[in-house]
Design a protein around this nucleic acid. Structure first.
Lengths: 243, 243
DNA sequence: AGGCTGGGCTGACGCAGATCAGCATCATCT
DNA sequence: AGATGATGCTGATCTGCGTCAGCCCAGCCT
């Protein structure tokens, strides 16, 4: 695997055999690099937004706030992920986006993408694939919230995150570094922070996963997969347009 | 409003000013009409799928099954809605699709769509808009499951459904006909059927909505909106590509 | 140093909603 | 007419998770 490419190129390249020319085109999208401080909203709901981003380093979350003050995190973005692709299409952003750590991201105008597609049409299919994968993840998240209990949710979440990170070279089947706090986990999983803490302790004491000092370590990968029926096909399925 | 067009054309036409030619093109997509019996899966997870559908009449639901036997309904499709657009892109369907009533739907090959787009490029933007709206609904559903209690969920759900039905001429601010059973509601809202029943009773006794004999009737629309902070902008927002 | 803040952690208690069990109604089938 | 199966409805009880309240530690201010 080519490790000197950006996480974005690496992710797409893992499922679509891309030529060197195509890979180079993808890397070129990263010319307009910007940096964002942790904890300061990049985009807030209702804001008029004209460009999307590709995350180069750091972690981001997209969330919705309810008037009650409750927050629901819809998704986390890690290096290689698109950010705000939809708010380019719609006139305004429909949710908030906040960096969790310091973030480096490349601004991508709609025009840049279209130019790249014209030069290398297969890239369009690849990007479409990435967008579909993101949607499949949201659906899986919905199933989590609707029909899995706290322990299964957590297990599923940690496994999915691991699979995504592995794809961009930031994780292995042993574990990965993870900057998320228990509060962030709570807001993503629809739980209270208190309960997140308890669930993590349970999982640790059962020898399944540990999550301490910013590191997720899989102690019993198979056991964890069994606990929540994790099926990763939705993450790395290749489509008919890819061949 | 033109009522002699299909629900699909009507829905798109409500937010994108479409010419008669464009409307006619949309209606032409409905040539390959098929009929499906209630309760028999149209598509099941993992099935290889090559065509999408546009619902002409009847109700459909897309859901995921867990090995535990639990079911999570991701979304309902009503007349005018696309069905399985994503499973055309991916090689296989990633969830099951089941008609709730008898359903008439038009089969749409990827080729038909592309042809229509070539003739009338504005249609592509309109269809993209519809797809984005569907995704926004899934996100809103996710917030429901993660951060709203049972009563708010139900209120939000009934209001959203009402707004969607109104768009295709199947509902008003007074109410609408709805073939969903309490079991279906439960599987969509992440509740038990027993609790759905109680919540419906509560809402009825508080004079907010009633849902009986297949009819949803809004007794106090404003009160219901206030209860769950319903904000319908995500349903009928027009995008920058529409002008 | 001392205070402040953010994060992890824990016990006691309460409640929303699940589960269990059962009844009533209606449509369809035999 | 009786049997069967959906669907709606209800009370009693149980439980997963939230809420409240508080402690501890580490890092960062002043």
């Amino acid at each position: 695997m080519n490790t000197h490419h950006t996480p974005f190129a690496r992710k797409l390249g893992a499922f679509v055999a891309l030529s060197d020319i195509e890979l180079a085109l993808l890397d070129q999208l990263h010319s307009r690099r910007r940096s964002f401080a942790a904890r300061r909203d990049m985009v807030h709901e209702g804001q008029v937004e004209r460009s999307a981003y590709i995350v180069a380093s750091g972690w981001v979350c997209s969330y919705k706030l309810l008037p009650s003050g409750a927050r629901q995190i819809v998704d986390f973005q890690i290096p290689g992920d698109f950010l705000g692709l939809r708010s380019v299409l719609f006139r305004t952003a429909d949710h908030n986006i906040e960096p969790i750590t310091r973030v480096q991201a490349s601004e991508v105008q709609a025009r840049d993408l279209l130019d790249a597609f014209n030069t290398a049409p297969r890239l369009a299919a690849a990007v479409l694939w990435a967008a579909s994968r993101d949607e499949a993840m949201v659906v899986e998240h919905l199933v989590d919230l609707g029909r899995r209990d706290a322990k299964q949710r957590m297990a599923h979440f940690l496994l999915e995150l691991g699979a995504r990170l592995k794809l961009v070279g930031l994780g292995t089947n042993e574990g990965y570094a993870c900057p998320l706090t228990q509060y962030l986990l709570a807001d993503a999983l629809g739980l209270s922070a208190v309960h997140v803490n308890r669930v993590l302790r349970d999982l640790r004491e059962e020898g399944l996963v540990s999550f301490q000092q910013g590191k997720v370590i899989f102690e019993n990968f198979a056991g964890l997969v069994a606990l929540c029926d994790f099926d990763r096909t939705y993450l790395d399925h290749e489509g008919p347009l890819m061949r």
